[in-house]
Design a protein around this nucleic acid. Structure first.
Lengths: 205, 205
DNA sequence: CCCATTTCGAAACTGAACGTTTCGTACGGT
DNA sequence: ACCGTACGAAACGTTCAGTTTCGAAATGGG
C-alpha cells in the first residue's frame, strides 16, 4: 500500500526533467560569494545568474525573489540549527547563546547581512515569516529552554517570565544592531545579564 | 561687524533667487499624504514631484534621496521633540514615555513608517545618523533622565545602569516591532517594567 | 522507441524607479 | 541692468526586478 502506488506524498517523483542539484548549489554558492566580496546591495539576480551559470529563469523558478535566495544562501553554510549544551548554569547557558549571536553581529559580513535581511523583511511579510521560522524563533526557543531549566534549578528569581526575559536580552542586542548602531560584545552580554539579576556563579554562588 | 558685512554666519543671504518655501512645504505635505494614503513603497520621487507641483530637480536640489524626504515629511508634523513632565514617580515617567512609543508603533501608518525608516537606515548610514540624531537619541535621553531622577529619589535598586536599562526597555519594544512582529501595548510596557524591578506605586509603595 | 512532461540556459523584454542633465524662465540683491 | 541662484518641465541614462519566449536536454511511461 505504501511502496510506489499512484500517489506517494513524500519524495513524489513527477515526470519530466528533474531539478538540477548542480544549478541549485551553484546559485547558492555564487550568492554567498557575492555577498562576501561586495556586500548585499551588490548582489543582484543578474549577477547571481551570471556567476553561477544558471539562467534567471531558473532562479525565479525556485525562489520568489532576491531576498529568498540570499537567505537560503546564507543559511546553507551557516546553519543556525545547532543548539547549545546544558552547562548546568543558567548564567553560563545564556552567555553561551548570546555570545554566539553577538559574535555573528560583529562579523562584518554576517552582521550587516542579518541587519539587512531584517530590513528587507520590513517590506516583505513572506521573508519576515521565513526569517522568524528558520532563525529567530529557534534562538528564542533555545533561550527560553535554558531559562526554564534555570528556573527548575532555582537559579531564577521568583516572578521571572522566560519569554519576557528573552525579549529583553535579545531585544537589547538587536536594538543596538539595528537602531543605535552601538557595539556589542561579550562584556555587554554580561552587563545585560547582571542588570537582569542573572548573576554569574562567581558573584553569588 | 555683525550687521550685514561680507559673511554673516547665521541667516546668510546669498545672492540669487531664494529658495521657495512654498515648494518646500508642498513637497513635504505631498510626501506625507502619499505616505498616509498608499504606504511607504508607493511614495516615489516622481509621485512626490507630480503631486506637489515641484520638479524632481528641486527635490534633489534639497534632499539627497527619498528616505531623507520621507523623514523630513514625517517629522515636519510629528515633532518628536516634546519631552514628558516629571511625575515624581519613576514608574509613571517610564510608562508615560514608553506608552507614547508603543502607541506610535501601533499606528498602522506611523508604525510601519518607523520600521521602514529603520530598515532603509541599514542601507544608508547618513539616514541612520539622521534618524538617531533627531529621534532615537532624544527618546533615549528622556528615558535616561527619568531614570536618573528616579535613582536620585531612591526609586531604583542599587547597581542599576540607566543606559543599559534603556537598552533593555526600548530594545524589547523595537525587537518586537522589527524582528518578531509581536504586538506591543501598555500592558506589555508594564510587564517589562515589572521584570526589571521598576515596580508600580500600588505594588510596593 | 517515442512521447509527454518538466527543467534547463540564453536572451530579449517590460516596467518601475532612482538620479542627472538641459533648458528657458522667475526672482532677488547690488 | 546685471549676476547668481532657484524654479518647473521634460527628456535622458542607468540599474535592477521580474517575465517571457525559445530551443535543447533530461526523465518516466507506454
Amino acid at each position: 500500500m505504501s511502496t510506489s502506488s499512484s500517489d506517494t506524498p513524500a519524495t513524489t517523483r513527477r515526470s519530466g526533467r528533474p531539478r538540477s542539484e548542480r544549478a541549485r548549489a551553484a546559485i547558492l554558492r555564487s550568492a554567498e560569494e557575492l555577498l562576501d566580496e561586495e556586500g548585499y546591495t551588490a548582489v543582484t539576480m543578474d549577477a547571481i545568474a551570471s556567476r553561477s551559470g544558471a539562467s534567471k529563469a531558473t532562479l525565479y523558478r525556485w525562489w520568489p525573489n532576491k531576498a529568498a535566495v540570499v537567505m537560503d544562501a546564507y543559511f546553507e553554510h551557516n546553519n543556525p540549527d545547532i543548539s547549545f549544551p546544558d552547562t548546568g548554569s543558567l548564567h553560563a547557558d545564556l552567555v553561551q547563546q548570546l555570545s554566539a549571536v553577538v559574535h555573528g553581529m560583529n562579523d562584518t559580513v554576517a552582521g550587516h547581512l542579518l541587519a539587512r535581511l531584517i530590513a528587507d523583511a520590513q517590506y516583505d511579510e513572506g521573508l519576515a515569516e521565513s526569517l522568524r521560522g528558520r532563525f529567530i524563533s529557534a534562538r528564542r526557543a533555545d533561550a527560553v529552554a535554558a531559562i526554564e531549566r534555570g528556573r527548575a534549578r532555582g537559579q531564577l528569581r521568583h516572578g521571572a517570565d522566560p519569554e519576557v526575559l528573552v525579549d529583553l536580552l535579545y531585544g537589547a542586542l538587536y536594538y543596538r544592531l539595528l537602531v543605535t548602531g552601538q557595539h556589542t560584545g561579550t562584556g555587554y552580554v554580561h552587563t545585560l545579564l547582571g542588570q537582569l539579576g542573572i548573576s554569574s556563579p562567581t558573584e553569588s554562588g
